[in-house]
Nucleic acid binder design. Sequence first.
DNA 1: GCCGTTTTCGGCCCGACTGTTTTCAGTCG
Length: 589
Amino acid sequence: MHNQEIAWALAEMANLLEILGENPFKVRAIRKGAMVIEGLETPVSVLSVRGQLAKIDGIGKGLCAEIEELLQAGESRQLQRLREKVPPGVLDMLQLPGIGLRAVRTFFAEGYTTLEELEEGARKHRLRLLPGIAAKTELAVIRGVELLRRRSGKFGLGVARPLAEELLRFLQNLPEVSRAEITGDLRRSQEMVEEIHLLAASQEPAAILDLVKKHPMAAKQLAEDETFVRFAFAFGLPVRIEVTGESDFIARWVETTGTAQHWAALQSRGARPAKASNGVAGGQQGSSTECRAAAESDEGDWRRFISTQEAEEVFYEKLHLPWIPPELRETGKEVAQAEAGELPDLVELGDILGDFHIHTNWSDGVSSLEEMVSAGRSRGYAYMAITDHSQSLAVARGLSESKLREQHRTIRQLAAREKDFTLFSGIEMDILGDGRLDYADDILREMDVVIASVHTGLRQERHKVHTRLEAALKNPHVDIIGHPTGRLIGTREPYDVDIDWLLDLAAKTGTILEINSSPDRLDLSAPHARLAKERGVMIAINTDAHDRARLSEMAYGVANARRAGLEKDDILNTKPLAEVKKILARPKG
DNA sequence: GCCGTTTTCGGCCCGACTGTTTTCAGTCG
């Protein structure tokens, strides 16, 4: 079982216990345990073998036993008992924004056990007859069900990508498979995907499919034919494993990576799908010829001869096009752009030199200051900013002014010991509900980096939201606006902000906007980040990491920036230290 | 359920906003 699967099982257990009225502190402890497991870098199974499970902070005797059972049996008896008591639809109700525990308990007690029943009750104005429920709650139910419906059957990048990579390793390790790659929506780094699509090349496709079908991971088979098998993987996420002959691989990879529009644009330039009638797949003259030639040379190990990406470049070359990055293969218009030589030179993960949004256990982070710094160093960063929460965000143990100054003294001491690595002292300061900022200018002046973020009053009217953001953007000490729209993908709508207004103000004031890399946020979204580039607004790609492991989420932020067409020069944290310092020090407009 | 002990049970992040009522509990972050 994966760490995330175990975390989800524990979180589900916490939710079920909560609905059944269990001690809230127990519920919170289990929920915290789930979070801790999710943030671990080492597989829980490894820690279990080493006997290190109980040493983890937040995992005690009870959770340890629960986790061991999940690892060994793949399920938990306690969880199964709880599931028998509470129908799954009731758990879903907890996901509805504005609907909390009390309301869910009321609905459950009145016999509502599915979202459909609940929605019907809301639409027919029957819910308002229940104690403590009124018209506004009915509206929240109807809106919430619509939100969940849009999300249903879709999985965030943060879940799908790691699982896909694990399956990919499995395929690549099979001796009969000459190459395997991720394709489809996931290769284009879409925010939500409906399935993992993997493509493998083999001289014995039927044998590979047989092997995959017999593997325990493919137990819940959904569909199959002679070219693919589709099964439900962890969390029920559908996986499609498709096997082609080696000569068809590249054409099929291109065909399945881009949208239908992208493929159509390529076809109009002569691209032929795999398994074309003449038996030759690929571009005008059959790009696969080279691939096959490569395969037949070098004693079959053509990976050494020509890399998969190079082979894809050959495919595009045959169409007289430069290689088009997967993240851009969307509308088909990128093909004309490519032809005109107007494709952006997209930012890459390797261009990233630092991270400007990092939490530690001084506020609501899990890892210590020292752990975050060493994790940043081992990622090869040149600089990093520590930005814990500010005083008003009490739930996140935000720092009082004196605590903030104490932290900064600690950071300076730590920074003085670091060579070839710069540690900035910063803060993620709350933009308060009434438009005030959480600290006065005299303390903000002492900071190397100030991120200003909205965490409260997310349902305010637009003019109020604008007043607040305006105060932050116009403040001479605010460098970056954190997660600028406040959305949580599939869970929470953004607050009411006119993005054009925001971008204009950012451009005018020289305020940097964040791409928050968390796969739950990706905020700015790719379309918004694209607009930001057009207005000349600088972007910082930050992780907002609360533990060491999540520093790696930078990859999602970079993928999002690539979908927006951003280049290295558009991004603050690709720039060398001297330039970063200059940018942070420049007077704002 | 976890933690930290003043080792064996008590404490566990909290303040603002919102919805439902009519003075406060639920919900959110």
